[in-house]
Every structure is written in C-alpha cells, then in structure tokens.
Measured scan of single mutants.
Amino acid sequence: NSLAEAKVLANRELDKYGVSDYYKNLINNAKTVEGVKALIDEILA
C-alpha cells in the first residue's frame, strides 16, 4: 500500500466513527504508512 492509499483508507475509517478534523489532519501529516496505522490504532482505541 502506498502512503496516499493508507491516508484515504484511514480517513474513511475515521468518518465511520465521526472523528473530528483534528485527527484527520494528524493522519494527513503522517510521513509513513506505519505512522498512519499507529495513529488509527491510537485514535480508535
């Protein structure tokens, strides 16, 4: 998966839960796919 794909999928996942734009910005600023995954795990914990 590319970083861009990971960000799109992460933001879709956040949308399902009604997560605020603050967290979407964190996702969009992530530098690695692993970073995106770690943020998602933390946000949805």
Score class of each variant (00 low, 15 high):
N1D: 13
N1M: 11
N1I: 15
N1E: 09
N1Y: 13
N1W: 12
N1Q: 14
N1C: 05
N1R: 07
N1L: 15
N1F: 13
S2P: 14
S2M: 10
S2K: 12
S2C: 03
S2L: 13
L3C: 02
L3R: 00
L3I: 04
L3K: 00
L3A: 02
L3T: 02
A4C: 05
A4N: 09
A4G: 08
A4T: 10
A4H: 14
E5W: 12
E5H: 08
E5L: 11
E5D: 11
E5K: 07
A6N: 04
A6Y: 12
A6R: 03
A6T: 08
A6W: 15
A6E: 06
A6P: 00
K7A: 03
K7R: 04
K7P: 00
K7I: 13
K7T: 02
V8N: 13
V8M: 14
V8L: 14
V8P: 00
V8D: 15
V8W: 15
V8S: 12
L9H: 10
L9M: 14
L9A: 15
L9V: 10
L9S: 12
L9I: 14
L9Q: 14
A10V: 02
A10Y: 03
A10E: 01
N11Y: 14
N11E: 11
N11R: 08
N11C: 06
N11F: 15
N11I: 15
N11D: 04
R12N: 12
R12H: 09
R12V: 12
R12A: 15
R12D: 04
R12C: 03
R12W: 11
R12I: 15
R12S: 11
E13D: 04
E13Q: 12
E13C: 10
E13I: 15
E13N: 05
E13G: 03
E13A: 09
E13W: 13
L14A: 15
L14F: 04
L14M: 08
L14T: 03
L14V: 05
D15T: 11
D15A: 12
D15F: 06
D15Y: 08
D15R: 07
D15Q: 08
D15E: 12
K16E: 05
K16N: 08
K16Y: 08
K16I: 06
K16M: 07
K16F: 05
K16T: 07
Y17R: 10
Y17P: 01
Y17H: 14
Y17S: 04
Y17F: 09
G18C: 05
G18R: 06
G18Q: 09
V19R: 05
V19F: 15
V19T: 07
V19W: 11
V19E: 04
V19I: 15
V19K: 05
V19A: 11
V19N: 06
S20I: 05
S20K: 06
S20C: 05
S20G: 13
S20P: 12
S20Q: 07
S20V: 05
D21M: 09
D21S: 09
D21W: 11
D21G: 07
D21H: 10
D21T: 08
D21Q: 12
Y22A: 08
Y22W: 12
Y22E: 09
Y22T: 08
Y23C: 07
Y23V: 05
Y23Q: 04
Y23K: 02
Y23I: 03
K24A: 06
K24E: 03
K24D: 02
K24F: 05
N25P: 03
N25T: 14
N25L: 11
N25W: 10
N25I: 08
N25C: 07
L26T: 03
L26E: 06
L26R: 06
L26M: 09
L26V: 04
L26C: 04
L26K: 08
L26A: 10
I27P: 00
I27Q: 00
I27W: 00
I27R: 00
N28T: 08
N28S: 09
N28L: 09
N28G: 07
N29C: 03
N29Y: 03
N29K: 09
N29H: 10
N29F: 07
N29R: 05
N29D: 14
N29I: 08
A30T: 05
A30E: 09
A30M: 12
A30Y: 01
A30G: 04
A30N: 02
A30F: 02
A30I: 05
K31T: 15
K31M: 15
K31Y: 06
K31D: 13
K31W: 10
T32M: 01
T32A: 02
T32C: 03
T32G: 03
T32E: 02
V33A: 05
V33D: 02
V33S: 04
V33R: 04
V33H: 06
V33M: 08
V33E: 05
E34S: 09
E34F: 05
E34Y: 05
E34I: 04
E34D: 07
E34K: 05
G35R: 13
G35D: 15
G35P: 00
G35M: 15
G35N: 12
V36D: 00
V36E: 00
V36I: 10
V36P: 00
V36N: 00
V36R: 00
V36S: 00
V36L: 11
K37A: 11
K37H: 12
K37F: 13
K37E: 07
K37T: 09
K37I: 12
K37Y: 07
A38S: 10
A38G: 06
A38M: 13
A38Q: 12
A38L: 13
A38V: 10
A38C: 07
L39C: 03
L39V: 10
L39T: 03
L39H: 02
L39W: 03
L39K: 02
L39E: 01
I40S: 03
I40H: 04
I40T: 08
I40K: 11
I40G: 01
D41R: 13
D41G: 06
D41K: 14
D41P: 03
D41N: 12
D41S: 07
D41T: 14
D41L: 13
E42F: 11
E42Q: 11
E42H: 14
E42D: 10
E42M: 15
I43C: 03
I43G: 03
I43P: 00
I43K: 01
I43H: 02
I43L: 08
I43A: 10
I43S: 02
I43T: 02
L44P: 01
L44F: 07
L44M: 12
L44N: 04
L44A: 04
L44H: 08
L44K: 10
L44W: 05
A45Y: 12
A45V: 09
A45K: 13
A45Q: 14
A45W: 12
A45H: 09
